[in-house]
Nucleic acid binder design. Structure first.
Length: 481
DNA sequence: TTAGGGTTAGAA
DNA sequence: TTCTAACCCTAA
């Protein structure tokens, strides 16, 4: 918790602290909201952990917020002028120059306007002379020589000449005192504020949300393609699914899979979603699609399609023959159509061995229980494939379902006296330098832990990586730092 | 969705 | 055989 943190986060522990980068995103978002008052904004500024130095975008947002506060109080002061100057250094914009000129004039002329009764005319003149010196002879002169020269406009030069002339011309000073310079400055700042907010566009969080929505649209388009593919081979896939029904396995999931595929309404790929949806109404069912799972699914389809795998064809015997490490398993058919259809023949390997024969012979619809989805498979055998499994990182259960269907197919095609269990494992892919560099930069920009966001921002580069892969890789990369 | 511990493949 | 990067599992 940073020093000065307020009651906003009274019970936050170290582990619960917001990452400073995230804090900056959140603060930027909140500061741009008109319904977040100045008091709350100030409290947030103190409470949220922020990077040091502040990111330019957040600094600009803070300055805009300060200008907005001045506007709301109808206050035009040297602080306003300073805010505009800083803003220009952080985020140069043509809209700043008119506001800067108008505020500079108001700050100079203000002492000449309606001097308090207690002040003499000479005091007002003295303040005016001082302002001309500070603002025009020092600040504006510095601007003309500095990197903020963009603030120096013809109007500013003309105003400077007029102010300097007023120093030696009492009549001009009197005329300046009667001008509506304050109103002109407020209008100019308001216009500047509006234009700057437009130029800054949405906040980072809004932009990220928008990117996610756009990704979703892409997924939706691709969903139609996948849906067609599934219909094309559903007779094959569902055939093996039906075998599972016959022996009493996972009927609810199977029914759902069938209804969703046949109905063409949508595809439920997330096991947990399927189970949750059991309790929903029919109207709600079938339209809930896990877009992340779908994204992986589509990637899988496109990967294999690009490898000239024909999804409309039934894989031929031998086309996807596994390579069992155990000689006694050589020659046995272990693959399953619905699973193997997603596998690349040149890349996959399979290892299998027998389980207790009694286990297989005792397969019974009434007694066979669905294994705990959380149980680790101690007798696992590995099966590598080329791409990210359909639900890897999304629904670990689905992989086990595929294992299950594999074994079902194995039993039905060979012998019920034995069953096989498979653990699917992707082929190892070494990270290339582009992936590493992209990850490094993405973490610097978005912060470690935002793996989904990072993957979403670089879909092409990380197309074969999951969010978990990014996390693991970053762990490896930082392990030796 | 993410963190962190466990497992495995492949290089040294 | 050892080590490490990549991958997987599980809990929160």
């Amino acid at each position: 918790m940073p020093q000065g943190s307020s009651s906003l986060l009274p019970h936050a522990t170290k582990d619960e602290m917001v990452d400073p980068v995230v804090g900056a995103w959140v603060l930027e978002f909140l500061l741009r909201r008109p319904d977040v008052g100045d008091a709350l904004a100030g409290e947030l500024l103190l409470a949220l952990p922020l990077p040091s130095p502040l990111p330019p975008r957040l600094s600009a947002t803070l300055l805009l917020r300060r200008l907005a506060a001045d506007l709301s109080r109808r206050s035009v002061s040297p602080r306003t002028l300073h805010s505009l100057d800083l803003l220009h250094r952080i985020r140069p914009s043509p809209s700043l120059a008119p506001a800067f000129t108008a505020v500079a004039v108001e700050c100079t002329v203000a002492p000449l306007r309606l001097p308090p009764l207690s002040s003499s005319e000479s005091d007002a003149d003295a303040e005016f002379f001082d302002a001309v010196n500070r603002i025009w002879n020092c600040l504006v002169a510095d601007l003309e020589r500095s990197e903020a020269a963009g603030l120096v406009s013809c109007a500013l030069r003309e105003a400077r000449m007029e102010m300097e002339a007023a120093v030696v011309d009492p009549a001009l000073r009197a005329e300046l005192g009667r001008r509506e310079t304050k109103e002109a400055a407020l209008v100019a700042v308001r216009v500047c504020l509006e234009e700057m907010e437009k130029e800054m566009g949405p906040t980072f969080l809004e932009a990220a949300a928008d990117a996610i929505v756009r990704c979703d649209c892409e997924t939706h388009r691709s969903l139609v393609v996948l849906s067609d593919k599934l219909r094309a081979f559903r007779s094959i896939g569902l055939e093996s699914v039906e075998r599972g029904v016959e022996i009493g396995h996972l009927p609810s999931k199977i029914d759902r899979a069938r209804s969703t595929v046949e109905g063409g309404e949508g595809i439920k790929l997330n096991d947990r979603n399927i189970e949750k949806d059991q309790m929903r109404t029919d109207q709600e069912q079938g339209y809930s699609v896990d877009k992340n799972a779908m994204s992986c699914e589509l990637q899988e389809v496109s990967d294999h399609k690009s490898c000239d795998n024909n999804y409309d064809d039934v894989p031929q015997s031998g086309q996807m023959d596994p390579v069992p490490p155990d000689p006694k398993d050589v020659g046995k058919k272990h693959h399953n159509i619905s699973t193997d259809t997603f596998l690349h023949p040149s890349e996959k390997r399979i290892r299998c061995s027998n389980l207790d024969a009694n286990t297989a012979t005792n397969l019974d619809a009434a007694t066979m229980q669905k294994p705990s989805l959380m149980d680790r498979n101690a007798t696992a055998h590995t099966f590598e494939w080329d791409s990210i499994p359909t639900h890897y990182g999304k629904s670990p259960n689905m992989k086990k379902e595929m294992d299950y269907f594999s074994s079902m197919n194995s039993k039905s095609s060979s012998s019920l006296n034995e069953t096989k269990e498979y653990v699917l494992r992707r082929r190892k892919r070494k990270w290339n330098s582009l992936e590493e560099e992209t990850l490094r930069k993405a973490v610097a920009r978005y912060g470690a832990g935002n793996w989904k966001l990072i993957k979403g921002c670089h879909p092409e580069i990380f197309e074969r990586r999951t969010e978990v892969d990014l996390k693991d890789k970053w762990r490896n990369m930082t392990r030796h730092m």
